[in-house]
Structure formats: C-alpha cells, structure tokens
Amino acid sequence: MHRYSSTQNNRIFILTGLSIALIVAVLLSPFASKNPDGLDRVAQDLKFESKSEKDSIAKKLPFFSIFEEYTMRGVPESVATPLAGLVGTIATFGLSMALGKLTTRQRHISQDDSTLK
C-alpha cells in the first residue's frame, strides 16, 4: 500500500515543502531583521569591515546586472527582495534536484517493479 502511493506522497511532499520555502523567501523576506549579522557586526566593531574587496569577482558576473545582492534590479523596491527570493529558491531547488537525479541510483524503482511482480 505504502509503495503504491509513494510517488503521490512524494509529489505532495515536494509541493508542500517548496511552497513553505517560497512563502518564506517571498513573503517573509521583506520582514527580515536589518541589523548587521554576526560577522558584519564583528567586522564593524573591530574595524576590519573595509578589508572586504569592493570590486569582487561576483560583481563581474552577468548575474550582477540582474541582482544586486538580494534585490532584483529595475523593479519597484517593494518587490525587489521577494523576486530575488523567488528566483533564488527555485534555482536552488532545481539545481539540487538535478544534482540528486544525476548522482543517486535508480535502484528502488526496479525493486518496486520486482515486488509488484
């Protein structure tokens, strides 16, 4: 019984999990604390913040013309961070699924088949 419905269960799990992630990234992200975080705070307090590379490699990548940190360029400020969250969450999801599909074994399918026979 369990095996019979496992594909459907997985679909429900993916939809639920991805929805929760998207709600967090899109709807909660504008409410994130604007205080400096652990490392930023230490870098400010101990005056080594200025050592960070202003002209970093990431700013030479084409993505920098679309996103400036977690804000999308060229859209109203109110949706800039939610849109960055949306794109980032889906990209991370897709890349991890693809990596998983490329690396894991397909064994359980053939086992399921043999169980069904």
Partner: peptide, 20 residues
C-alpha cells in the same frame, strides 16, 4: 537511492529561503 531526490530539492530550497 533516488527516493532521496525530492528531499534534496526541498531541503536546499528551504535552507536558501531560511537564510534570507
């Protein structure tokens, strides 16, 4: 096994979102 794949995707998406 490939039954891990959905959790890999969801886990990554959630951690990315939560880190924001």
């Amino acid at each position: 096994q490939d039954r891990t794949v959905p959790l890999m995707g969801v886990c990554a998406a959630f951690i990315f979102a939560a880190q924001m």
